[in-house]
Design a protein around this nucleic acid. Structure first.
Length: 575
RNA sequence: GCCAAUGUAGCUCAGUUGGUAGAGCAGCUCAUUCGUAAUGAGCAGGUCAUCGGUUCAAAUCCGAUCAUUGGCUCCA
């Protein structure tokens, strides 16, 4: 139908929403209403507290405005005129936005029906072309995103070219809801949080534990294969350590309060780095032993603000799949490339193949020599190119202590998750005075790189659950095979079959309830168990099992050995 | 931390204008021994998040606290 870009359609939909708001709540002061990646929003300041029912009302007004096909009129006026116009309407936020427009730039307003808005445009021609829209949620948002500013009310909506595209998007949202890791975590008994333990502190239940154990084992093996050594370090450390690291100066708000023992303050660690540095500091190092690659599944605690906690994705206690690489300037490029390749391999094994890179460079305030920053950034760029990754650059977006590359992985329903991070550190080697002796016999400052491939096990688990919608690939499934005897007569056979399979290394359970086979099948399927083996009179006699594979459906009666082969093959896939 | 919504049995939810709680599933008991997505009957299960207030009377109204949800912000 219309050939406008989606952003234009959405931006115009935002204007139509604002027009509807103005109609229903005339005293509203408007801020801005941009398009976003998947829709649009508009921020308002009004006395009325928006409630969900308002969305329906606004939507019907919007539909009316859309049906009226009112033209979007562009008005170009002088700054003075614009000012007096906005002043007369008491639009203080708009006035401030106006002041932001550089001298000499054209000042444009767009009018649609009664609603006139300071806006750069562009817009669709008339309100009938703003596509198919839907208002979604009400939220609060700080004016200009600053905590000290007043809070405005924001309405989120989305718009698409046509009804069909909108429906596809809304279906995706539904789908996302269905695979919400919090819901599945409860249903599949994977993890929980307890009021008496504390918010953001994850308790892994047996089934989650089985999965985590698989992940960890795989992770450790691969790290040894990739030339890492594994460390184990304490959960707490003396204040001195955190003083030296600088955490107490810069990061204290996000740390749990100290515990005083014997007149010493111990802090629960928010990061593993200072401990790894202690390992480095146990003795002198020669350039000949570099690079050192030290990894740890290190559990850290950060006192995140209450409002940001979210299931497994944002928590207060989590286990980072952390590692520190300490190397010479000459080695840095190879090392970064190795890490990137390692990460891509890792994610592929867990079923994620679409990955993009985001490079963050030197901010205004930074520590470390400029030349080192440049070398680091160059090595990051080169490595990204060698790995054939698409890369976006966030200029000045790095931390003060070093540039970094983040990877974002795309999941089964197209959402991007920030996961891997590779982060240079020019700060800690300095603070802890880390050195190595070079070929010249002189002391040199090594490069240090932090990296986490999965991010944290908790967050990774959340992403994993949502990606597979609870149907874990066979190599991770907490229960790979469930054996269902049809009557009590087969209990003994079921038990000995389970023992046999367990001995072969499979995760097997039996369902000995006196339920009908239909009920047992149903429960097993709801748990997304990859292989269901039914064993009745006939199977016992023939030495077979009737198998239902999650992937292939009903396979009928097959010899036990054939089942074993099948499970083995599927487990070996590491999809 | 901020804005808003929510909090009733293990889970998912109902509970009219205030008159001290109800269903399904899960659990337990008994019966059923069954062939590929729910066998039947019975029993038990709740300081209605917590604390305080209004009222003759509070799950219901008000306030505070805690937690969760959607956002904002933060994530050196």
């Amino acid at each position: 139908m219309s050939s406008y870009p989606l952003e234009t359609i959405r931006h115009s939909a935002a204007h139509i929403m604002a027009a509807a708001v103005k109609e229903l709540f005339p005293d509203t002061r408007f801020d801005i209403g941009p398009s976003t990646d998947d829709g649009f929003y508009y921020d308002f300041d009004m006395d009325h507290r928006l409630v969900p029912e308002d969305l329906e009302k606004l939507e019907s007004v919007m539909k009316r405005i859309s049906a009226e096909k009112l033209p979007f009129k562009k008005l170009e006026i002088s700054r003075a005129e614009a000012e007096s116009l906005l002043k007369s309407q008491n639009q203080k936020y708009k006035l401030e936005r106006l002041a932001d427009i550089p001298e000499g730039e054209a000042i444009t307003f767009y009018q649609c029906g009664e609603f006139v808005d300071l806006c750069r445009g562009p817009h669709v021609e008339n309100s009938g072309q703003a596509g198919a829209f839907r208002l979604l949620t009400i939220a609060g948002s700080y004016y200009r995103g600053k905590e000290t500013n007043p809070m405005l009310q924001r309405i989120y909506g989305t718009a698409f070219e046509n009804e069909k595209a909108l429906r596809v998007h809304l279906n995706m949202l539904e789908e996302a809801k269905k695979r919400d890791h919090r819901k599945l975590g409860k249903e599949l008994e994977l993890f929980t949080v307890a009021d008496d333990v504390g918010p953001g502190l994850i308790i892994w239940q047996p089934k989650g534990g089985r999965i985590r154990n698989q992940i960890e084992n795989f992770w450790r093996e691969e790290h040894y294969k990739n030339g890492y050594e594994l460390l184990y370090t304490p959960h707490i450390g003396l204040s001195n350590l955190w003083q030296t690291s600088g955490h107490l100066d810069f990061y204290k708000d996000a740390m749990y309060s100290p515990m005083e023992v014997d007149k010493n303050d111990y802090y629960v660690k928010p990061m593993n780095c200072p401990f790894h540095i202690q390992v480095y500091k146990t003795r002198n190092h020669s350039y000949r032993e570099l690079p050192l690659r030290w990894a740890e599944l290190g559990t850290v605690y950060r006192f995140e603000k209450g409002g940001v906690l979210h299931g497994l994705l944002r928590v207060r206690g989590f286990t980072q799949d952390d590692a520190h690489i300490i190397c010479t300037p000459e080695q840095i490029e190879d090392e970064i490339e190795r890490v990137l390749k390692f990460s891509l391999y890792m994610w592929k094994c867990f079923g994620f193949n679409e990955i993009n890179a985001y490079l963050a460079t030197r901010p205004e305030k930074a520590v470390g020599e400029e030349s080192r920053w440049e070398q680091a950034i160059t090595s990051l760029e080169k490595a990204v190119n060698k790995c054939g990754l698409k890369c976006e650059v966030d200029k000045g977006g790095g931390a003060f202590y070093g540039p970094k590359i983040d990877l974002k992985v795309k999941d089964a329903i197209g959402r991007e998750w920030q996961t891997t991070t590779i982060q240079f550190d020019f700060n800690l080697p300095e603070r802890f005075d880390m050195t190595y002796v070079g070929a010249d016999g002189q002391k040199h400052r090594p490069y240090m790189v932090h990296r986490a491939l999965l991010g944290s096990l908790e967050r990774f688990f959340g992403i994993l659950i949502e990606n597979c919608a609870g149907a874990f690939p066979a190599w991770l499934a907490p229960e790979q095979i469930r054996i269902l005897p049809i009557t009590e007569d087969q209990h003994a056979s079921a038990a000995s079959l389970a023992d046999k399979l367990r001995e072969l290394g499979f995760r097997v359970d039996t369902d000995m309830r006196t339920e009908k086979i239909g009920a047992k099948i149903r429960d097993a399927r709801n748990l997304r168990i990859p292989f269901i083996a039914v064993i009745g009179e006939k199977e016992v006699a023939a030495g077979t099992v009737s198998v239902r594979s999650r992937r292939e459906g009903e396979l009928g009666a097959i010899p036990v050995d054939t089942l074993i082969e099948k499970v083995k093959n599927e487990v070996a896939e590491k999809l």
